[in-house]
Design a protein around this nucleic acid. Structure first.
Lengths: 113, 113
DNA sequence: TAGTTAATTAACTAAAAGGTAAAATAAAAA
DNA sequence: TTTTTATTTTACCTTTTAGTTAATTAACTA
């Protein structure tokens, strides 16, 4: 398994339950039970999802009495945004122009051989 | 396993070999051998990574003689970009101000109870 | 046609992911 | 102090992932 930060972030985001948890946390700090409520899933499953998000640094946790509130820690998304930024020009070019662009690059490569 | 498009895209991006393959494809169409060359990995492993990328719609493939050239298909990254856009305001707020913002929301929630 | 090159498929393995039920822990409330 | 509430840990199961080697397919080349 890949343990580099970007892989860890993408991995954490690749589950709809975890993305829904992040979405809930955009409205503020929440308890585990709060977060579990919308899902047809046992508590331990939610605990595991929270662990994945915590290890990916996408949430932070504290303690208040018997609660372990979670809050959003969006910083790793910055790196995803930067990564994806490199590809923006490729989807912004229309399909046909992308074809042309890549064909050009390809011809350039062939000339280099 | 989650089969929704966004999960599939994030899943495909969660491996550094696959991200490196995409990066190589930004310089134009490439054969499987071209793509395999930088990695200390057997061909079947690369074939599998390409299958994951193809199923995630991040690459497209064709046939030329005995070659199966690959090219970038960046469209699914658009959706990732849109998803992440919803979180931009959270990492753009300074850490302290985010704390305040979330605390505010939290108080509002408590008042609603 | 025989051999080579490019890539895939098949069969297998080890580890990780995502879930469960039951037991354990920690703090609050009665 | 006992009970309840919130959450985690443990032990288990099944499926998926990421890799391997060996065999196969497909097309070019001598």
């Amino acid at each position: 398994m890949s343990t580099d930060p970007l892989s860890t972030t993408f991995r954490a985001l690749s589950d709809p339950t975890r993305r829904a948890i992040l979405a809930t946390l955009t409205t503020g700090e929440k308890t585990v039970s709060d977060l579990a409520e919308p899902f047809d899933m046992t508590m331990p499953a939610i605990t595991k999802h929270l662990k994945v998000l915590e290890k990916a640094n996408l949430i932070e946790r504290s303690r208040e009495a018997q609660y372990r509130p979670c809050r959003l820690h969006p910083e790793p998304l910055k790196d995803v945004d930067e990564w994806i930024g490199e590809y923006r020009k490729f989807w912004e070019a229309s399909f046909d122009r992308l074809e042309d662009y890549l064909k050009q690059l390809q011809m350039k490569d062939k000339n280099d051989e």
